[in-house]
Each structure stands twice: as structure tokens, then as C-alpha cells.
């Protein structure tokens, strides 16, 4: 049974740090970094924000956009690799804060940067099977990058929440199908009790990101008998501003198809939220009957590809959205020392 997207909501913290500001600290050439990664700045969570608070604001926005009673949500999955607790769920915090408790089930996902889309697929199953009327999938992160590491220029914060429901008139879009490509390819990891992740450098490219993103996309296109020309928009996981553009090119998508969903240059890599925020950005402006490709990627996890077709309700419900552009444009720059304080980099 096809399922629909009933509503969505996003959140991006207000603070930003420019690539130049980080480069200055490490004696790097900012122009090389900005060009090399196709980025300009990244979002920084405030000192009172974490993956849970970000998820809550996105989830509240999703509920208002969907126009449903939160108590009708039967399942909440929160995907993140920066859950505030090592042991103690985030999803219950979200469920409580949107007043969906207590008659629902919930779980946290931790599956690299595709934990959010993994939740999306699980919601498709639960709702499609008729177990629940609505499911909520959230991707949220306040991602970590070791000071001085290349990741520091991109590791950002943000969250997106999607409510999956039936495919009737209240759906703003149908999820036409999904395909995943999953292998054990360790290109990025963080060990237990370690504050920062490590990565395989250039190994994160061809055998990791590109292989999985391309394979999942090919599989989906084959399955649904679609070609890149059938899509108005394409959104790819975006660890930097360069990889998604290159992946699009190799798959035969144009820069125009990718532009609206490409947020990393302005807000950095929001990890579990990245592809979902890209999708939200597209939905913010999409017209009815437009097809959107969304492909996530998680290091050591794989890729999930989705084909989404918008409906008439997308325009009717638009007045209830808080568009991502609002969060992107309401920004305040911080210097590196404030950033270090907010991110808890100072040893006391």
C-alpha cells in the first residue's frame, strides 16, 4: 500500500560560523577550503540545544503542518548519531514534548547519517501495513568534528521531521517507492567513549559515498522504471557541497534539479538530517505533481533512495509550514571562541 507524507517540519539553529573563522584558527587557506568543499559556513547549536531540542522543534512544526492531533501518531523514530544520552531514548522526550504520549511506540535509531531515512522506511512499513495511522520519522544531529579536522568545517546541526500517513487527500506527497544499498564499508566511525569521529580521508569518496549513493539510485530507477528526466528535483546526502553535485552529474541529473535541495554550502552537514532537510527545502516550493528523488547516505551503513510525488495538498497546507529558508536566513555569526564555548570544546 502506498503511503503519503502528511506533514513535515524542520529546524536549524540560529548560530553560524564562517569557514574563514575556522580556517584562521588552523592557519588554513579559507578560499581553498570553501572551494574544495563547496561550503561557506555552517550552523552551530546554541548552548541550550541538543539533538532532542532540535528534534522537538522540527516535530512541533511537522504536527502543525500536518494539521493532525499528535495523539494520533502511533510511532516515533528518532535517528541521530548525537543522541543526548548514550543510554536513554530521545524519542520519548520528543513524544512527550509534542504530547503524543502515552499510546504510541517509539525507538531511537543510530545508523550513521541515514538513521533518519531508516526511520522513514520503518514508518512506511508500519503505516503501509495498517498498524498505525501516522508515524513520525526524525533525523536530528548536533554533529561532532574534531578541532582542526576537515570535518570541523562542515559538522553542523539541524533536524527534520516527517509525518507518514495514508495516501489520501491530506497527503502532500506520495512515497512511490524506496530502495536501499547496504554494505559494511567503514569510511567514518566513532568508537565508544571517544568524543570525535575518525574517517578514512579520500576513502570516504569513491568506494563509500559514491558507490552507495549511485547504486541505491540506480536500483530505485530500475525498480520504478524512471529516468533522471522524470524528476523535477533530486536531493542527495551532502557531507559537503561537492559530493552531491558530483553524484548528480554521474547519475545524469542537472545542477538545476539539485540546487533547491542543496543546503550544506549554507548550513553545513547536518548528518542524519541532511537529506531530509534537503527534501523539506524542495517541498517548501514544489508544485503539485512534481517528482523528487531523495538519496541518503550513512557511513558504514549504506544508502536509502526514495521517489516522492507531490499532490495538490502541498499548496493548501503551505500556509502552515515554517519554511527552512526562515531558519537559514535568521542567523547570527559567532567567532571561534564562542563556538568553542557553545560546543563544549573548552576543558575546565
Amino acid at each position: 500500500m502506498a503511503v503519503g507524507i502528511t506533514g513535515y517540519g524542520v529546524y536549524v539553529p540560529r548560530y553560524r560560523i564562517k569557514a574563514e573563522e575556522i580556517a584562521k584558527v588552523w592557519g588554513a587557506d579559507p578560499e581553498k577550503i570553501k572551494h574544495g568543499l563547496n561550503i561557506t559556513e555552517k550552523s552551530v547549536p546554541g548552548p541550550d540545544e541538543d539533538a532532542a531540542t532540535i528534534a522537538v522543534e522540527a516535530a512541533r512544526n511537522a504536527v502543525s503542518h500536518a494539521g493532525i492531533n499528535a495523539r494520533d501518531i502511533g510511532v516515533i523514530y528518532v535517528g541521530s548519531e548525537s543522541h543526548p544520552y548514550a543510554v536513554k531514548p530521545t524519542a520519548t522526550i520528543v513524544a512527550e514534548a509534542i504530547e503524543a504520549t502515552p499510546n504510541l511506540t517509539a525507538a531511537d535509531y543510530e545508523f550513521a547519517c541515514k538513521a533518519g531515512t531508516a526511520g522513514l522506511q520503518a514508518c512506511m512499513g508500519v503505516v503501509g501495513f495498517g498498524m498505525m495511522n501516522y508515524g513520525m520519522a526524525i533525523g536530528t544531529d548536533t554533529s561532532q568534528g574534531a578541532p582542526g579536522d576537515a570535518l570541523e568545517y562542515t559538522a553542523a546541526a539541524g533536524g527534520a521531521s516527517f509525518i507518514i500517513g495514508n495516501n489520501g487527500s491530506e497527503a502532500i506527497a506520495t512515497i512511490e517507492g524506496t530502495c536501499s544499498f547496504t554494505t559494511d564499508t567503514p569510511d567514518f566511525w566513532r568508537r565508544e567513549m571517544r568524543p570525535y569521529p575518525r574517517h578514512g580521508g579520500r576513502f570516504t569518496g569513491k568506494p563509500a559515498y559514491f558507490k552507495h549513493v549511485l547504486s541505491a539510485t540506480h536500483a530505485l530507477l530500475r525498480k520504478l522504471k524512471l529516468t533522471p528526466q522524470d524528476f523535477a528535483y533530486a536531493v542527495f546526502h551532502q557531507p559537503n557541497g561537492k559530493f552531491p553535485v558530483q553524484a548528480a552529474k554521474e547519475l545524469g541529473f542537472s545542477k538545476t534539479q539539485v540546487a533547491q535541495g542543496l543546503l550544506t554550502p549554507k548550513i553545513g552537514n547536518t548528518y542524519s538530517a541532511a537529506s531530509m532537510l534537503g527534501l523539506a527545502s524542495v517541498l517548501d516550493i514544489a508544485k503539485p505533481n512534481e517528482r523528487i528523488l531523495v538519496v541518503s547516505y550513512g557511513s558504514g551503513a549504506g544508502s536509502d533512495a526514495f521517489s516522492i510525488l507531490t499532490h495538490d495538498a502541498i499548496e493548501k497546507k503551505r500556509k502552515n509550514t515554517v519554511p527552512i529558508s526562515k531558519y537559514i536566513n535568521q542567523k547570527e555569526y559567532v567567532d571561534y571562541s564562542t563556538y568553542a564555548k557553545y560546543r563544549g570544546l573548552l576543558v575546565k
Binding site: 546554541g46 541550550d48 540545544e49 541538543d50 531540542t53 522537538v56 522543534e57 512541533r60 514534548a97
Partner: peptide, 8 residues
């Protein structure tokens, strides 16, 4: 102002 959800 609106009241938002934050860490206390």
C-alpha cells in the same frame, strides 16, 4: 515571544 523547548 514564543516559548520553545530547550535544555535548562
Amino acid at each position: 515571544v514564543e516559548l520553545v523547548f530547550r535544555r535548562m
